[in-house]
Design a protein around this nucleic acid. Sequence first.
DNA 1: TTGTAGGCGTTATCAA
DNA 2: TTGATAACGCCTACAA
Lengths: 341, 341
Amino acid sequence: MDTITIKDVAKICGVGVSTVSRAINNKPGINEETKNKILGVIKENNYIPNNSARNLKRSETNNIAVLVKGINNLFFSPVITELEREIEKKKYTFILQHVDENQDEIEVAIELEKEKRLKGIVFLGGYFSHPKDKLEKLTVPFVLSTVGMTDNMKNMEYSSVAVDDVKESYKVVDYLCKLGHNKIAVLSAICDESIGKLRFEGYKKALSDNNIEFNEKLVYYLQSGNDRYSIQSGYNAMKRLLEEKADCTAIFASTDLIAIGACRAILENGYNIPDDYSVAGYDGLELSRFITPSLTTIRQPVENIAKETIRILFDAIDNNEGSVHKVFAGELIVGESTRKI
Amino acid sequence: MDTITIKDVAKICGVGVSTVSRAINNKPGINEETKNKILGVIKENNYIPNNSARNLKRSETNNIAVLVKGINNLFFSPVITELEREIEKKKYTFILQHVDENQDEIEVAIELEKEKRLKGIVFLGGYFSHPKDKLEKLTVPFVLSTVGMTDNMKNMEYSSVAVDDVKESYKVVDYLCKLGHNKIAVLSAICDESIGKLRFEGYKKALSDNNIEFNEKLVYYLQSGNDRYSIQSGYNAMKRLLEEKADCTAIFASTDLIAIGACRAILENGYNIPDDYSVAGYDGLELSRFITPSLTTIRQPVENIAKETIRILFDAIDNNEGSVHKVFAGELIVGESTRKI
DNA sequence: TTGTAGGCGTTATCAA
DNA sequence: TTGATAACGCCTACAA
């Protein structure tokens, strides 16, 4: 039972292929009666149009792709849900495409743009630092969403929506300082161009503004590799800290998962949170409200980010608007993992 | 700057398209020199073959698709990673395709099979209960992986790899019984054809084998809707249980996330785990080892499941082997969330 | 070793 | 309202 094509359908119905095509695509200029008949035959014979052929032939589609880097990032999941909703609200087709940690998202995007005749692209995650000439190969509008924003991005010719990682990590570390902590360790990724670096910067800035001297010895680097932001990685880093008996009363973890791993290490060693150590994270995962102790963290306004991303994207598609860099404020969520001292 | 095609490349190089095609696809029968020259021109002009055209023309590919139902299922993430590794080890192309909660995975698969000329398909998740005639529209081999197995699946003509949900949930509930608990509540999904039902069955069976009478009042149903397996959902169900002061000493949650939500509700109400309530989950997420108290749960052998899935799939592809139903045993992980009474 | 031409399954443009 | 027919961009006999 070989696969059936539009030609077969046409033959069965005794009409031309173009008529069948019109029926499939709901195009005008076709008799209701013939249309119904064709649709009936299609259903009966389980005819399904070949997407490759369609994409090849169609000059224009309503496809929007969302490229996600890193499949196991819990944080993205609600963002994606929201993006999908927004895209479908616009009557566009939502295409979710995962990008491997060690794949180049731009290459993937360029290929996909041609294959699916995309109208627009959203990039989620990753460390976006691509040379200009490479980005220019993308001919449709695209928006970077929730990607750590580096300074040189600000004057690029594409749009972005995100929170200011420096500012927000500053916010949470500053909060720790105001609670009276002045020996604050940080669990940070080494060799991370984006969020790791930015959140580390915010940490340093907050210390400095609170007249606390930056102490190199309180910086604990996460393991390298693609799993650097795993729970295990946070656990490992914290364990080292404890073993070395680093002198601190609070820990700033660069993501919630890192914080969760750190908490486990602390509790496992017989210490208490927040009595012995205050712990703060960053991301505001749903999960972080439900673990015990609940995490003090920065909640990123997921819904707004997604909505704004799509708004900007469609502004570019429909009205040819130029690039915009929208920054949302995060929200400090005070959980049970931190205390005044 | 319109997109460049193979013809343009051929023209620039002053060769025929077939020569360019040979260069791209690493086919034999081409002069090394011309090949290098062509490859050079391609790089220079950023030529990227159109996948739609390729898929359309190619009679055969090495594409294997993994269809995942439910994007926010933490459990799948390591399975996917493993599947990808195995598929690429076989020199096949791994295609990850998400399926919406309210989409029909078979429809998606049928379409994708044609579009991408798939060689095989792996289904992950979902509640697999499709009519036979529909499944027959899939012409390539496919394997169901980690999907709750219902009895009528056993004699279907397709393959599956999973753990026995009834048996494993029996295992963990039996463990609770052996600890001395005889009033065990269950947090279970209502109207779930698959895992919810199966795990509930295991629960009942364990009670019965331990001479504990099944008590309807100790069954707490999760909210309906696509988020029924969310942490919040577990939290809500447990909260109801506490409010109604249900008489029990242990809780069996049908997934780890549900258990985590339940734990939060318990602790928030001033009770202790496991002193006041023992809590057990199911899935064996990495996360569950790191929260405090760590969860007693059933760990599914993710790596073996993935490996076996691919093995069976390729057996079907390469050797035309018939259907196999492989069942792996889960592992009872004893955490800090349960105690003897 | 290379080039020409036909076709993959659609859609779009005509003319009927 | 319909039906040929020419693309879409690529691969692959087959011929040179």
